[in-house]
Simulated scan of single mutants.
Amino acid sequence: MTQTLTVPTSLEWHEDYLLILNQQKLPNIVEYIKLTSIEEYYDAIITLKVRGAPAIGLTAAYGLAQSACQYEVKTLEEFIDLFQREKKYLAASRPTAVNLVWALNRLEKVLEKVSSVNEAKTNLLHAAIQLHAEDEAVCRLIGENGLSVLKDKQIVMTICNAGSIATSKYGTALAPFHLGREKGKAFQVYACETRPVLQGARLTAWELQQSGVDVTLITDSMAAHTMKEKGVEAVIVGADRISANGDTANKIGTSMLSILCKHFNIPFYVAAPSSTFDLSSLDGNDIPIEERNREEITTIDGTVIAPENVHVYNPAFDVTPHELITGIITEKGILYPRFEESIQQNIGIKQ
């Protein structure tokens, strides 16, 4: 029996602004804010008001397109020069999430076929809107493919937030849970809190509750014990970048889960759209790992919880080696080892 979902979304385009769910305030405050200037878009991305690789890419695309619509230039050459500078500016906001640069490159391709400034402005905005619609369709396909993989499994663990508020809708790793709820399949989800900024606790737990999914929150360090005691049947995670050989960058703590899955003989799945694959990165060593502010570890809501002078190492991501991944769930199907071959055959050169 089909059930009505209340899946929250992160982005909503209006005629002259982007409305985003401010994920800094969740779960206590549900606040939507308007973005109108390119500086506001940059700030929203770098401060994690919007986060999740697909949502970051969409936000950057809207930001660049909207800013371009405000250029007061006379020639197409001037327009393209200003566009390139602002593209570089937005691309520097989050270095690990490949969807960011992918989306900006999609917009850049639009300029190859325009002959006037007005045409460029119109086509760039249409391209951003098209990317938004494509992402929602892609996420639903990922969810359907994820359900096919998890058809005989009910108890599943995840980390970070790879859900509807990290994308346009449904999400990647969380998409099977949202769609499962819609189709009457019940999952029992164990969500790691996810350091350094507790996105599992603040976002995944909140989002799954909105959708009516049975979710239990655990700390990251409880993963091994939970797998053993609660009978976890699968782990599914998202990705911010996947290299040509299948090595996958995701929120810090993901590689730990993959190692535990090998020990307990639990399948470990990555769910991501084809736009997350970076075929120019041969393996995980080519993926840049973002390091973030020390205060994300030494404080909670402004309260200091660590010695003032302690050294802090705060990588936001780690890389899971491809040999620890059971399968990669994409909108084009499920990729299995040997990943270098299956990625080349199914993903190839991204459009």
Rank of each mutant, 00 (worst) to 15 (best):
K113L: 12
W102K: 05
Q130D: 15
I155Y: 07
V101I: 15
F187G: 05
I129W: 02
R181M: 14
N118G: 12
K183Y: 14
L147Y: 10
D135C: 04
L208M: 13
V156D: 03
L203D: 08
D152H: 13
E134L: 09
T122S: 13
K153T: 04
G180R: 11
Y170I: 05
S115Y: 09
A103Y: 05
L208Q: 03
A224P: 11
E136T: 14
H126I: 08
M227L: 06
L208F: 01
V101L: 14
M227S: 01
L179W: 07
A186R: 15
E112G: 12
G184Q: 08
K183P: 10
K153G: 05
F187W: 10
S221N: 15
T172P: 08
I218L: 04
G146M: 08
N161V: 04
A175Y: 03
K151G: 06
V197I: 15
H178M: 15
C160W: 01
E207H: 07
I218F: 06
Q210V: 06
T122K: 14
W206I: 10
T167K: 02
P95F: 01
A224C: 10
G163L: 07
G180C: 11
K185I: 14
K121M: 09
T216W: 00
N99F: 02
N118K: 13
I218C: 09
A103N: 04
L107C: 11
R195F: 02
G212W: 04
C192H: 00
R106P: 07
G171Y: 06
E119P: 11
E119Y: 09
Q210R: 13
L147R: 10
L150F: 05
T226G: 00
S164H: 12
N118T: 14
N105K: 09
L203Q: 06
E182T: 04
G184W: 00
S116R: 00
Q130F: 10
G171Q: 08
V110I: 12
T172W: 04
R106V: 08
T204E: 01
T216C: 07
A224Y: 10
V117S: 06
V197N: 13
R195D: 02
V114I: 11
E182S: 12
A127P: 01
S164I: 11
E144Y: 09
A223Y: 03
E134A: 04
M157D: 06
T219H: 00
H225C: 05
L198N: 15
L203F: 03
